[in-house]
Amino acid sequence: MEQILIVDGYNIIGAWPELSKLKDTDLEGARDGLIHMLAEFQSFSGMKVYLVFDAYMVPGLGKKYVQNKLAVLYTKEKETADERIERLVTNLMGRRKEIFVATSDMIEQHVIFGKGALRMPAKELLVKIKQNRKEVRERIVTETTTKRNPFGGKLSDEMKAKLERWRRGE
């Protein structure tokens, strides 16, 4: 089953303490931080992630681009992120698809739930991202320690001692 995650960008930035603090002085930095975190999450989790930013007051048709293999969407003029997310849920809904929407907006959670998508509060997404990062670190440590000396765990203590003496020229 294909899993899809749609993220309400500014809602998540406002809900996560680290990004919320950053947005007050550097909104672009907060956006880039979220994009980076979600790109990592997408690559490790296998979920397809769509990140939606509200450009309600910005004239234009909206835009979509891919950054670090992450789909980033800006709404068109006079369109809210909630409206874009609802349309995206409707367009993506189908057989063998499980769609999650990450937002802390309770009204939006109810609306998307009514359309068949599953809710994921901002805090739950943050926990999942931190959990994924931990698993990646553990996997890296495991792979580097086992690949560094592939014979280390397979040799007897006597053979290890003999090789060590030989290495030292004894």
Rank of each mutant, 00 (worst) to 15 (best):
A30V: 08
R31I: 01
D32L: 13
L34F: 12
L34P: 13
I35Y: 07
H36F: 08
H36N: 06
H36P: 01
M37V: 03
A39V: 04
F41G: 07
F41C: 06
F41T: 01
S43L: 05
M47F: 15
K48L: 04
K48Y: 11
V49C: 04
V49S: 03
Y50S: 10
V52C: 04
V52L: 04
V52R: 01
V52E: 01
F53V: 02
A55H: 13
Y56N: 14
Y56W: 15
M57C: 12
V58K: 13
G60C: 00
L61Y: 03
Q67D: 06
Q67A: 13
L70P: 15
L70N: 09
L70R: 09
A71T: 15
V72P: 10
V72K: 02
L73R: 14
L73C: 11
L73F: 12
Y74I: 01
K76A: 04
E79C: 14
E79Y: 12
E83I: 07
R84F: 04
R84D: 00
R87I: 05
L88W: 10
N91G: 11
M93I: 11
M93C: 06
M93Y: 13
R96G: 14
R96Y: 14
R96L: 06
K97M: 00
I99E: 04
F100V: 06
F100P: 15
A102Y: 06
T103K: 03
T103P: 10
T103M: 00
T103E: 00
D105F: 08
I107C: 01
I107E: 04
Q109V: 02
Q109Y: 03
Q109H: 11
H110M: 02
V111E: 00
I112D: 00
I112P: 10
F113R: 12
F113S: 11
G114F: 00
K115Q: 13
K115S: 01
R119F: 00
M120F: 05
A122D: 04
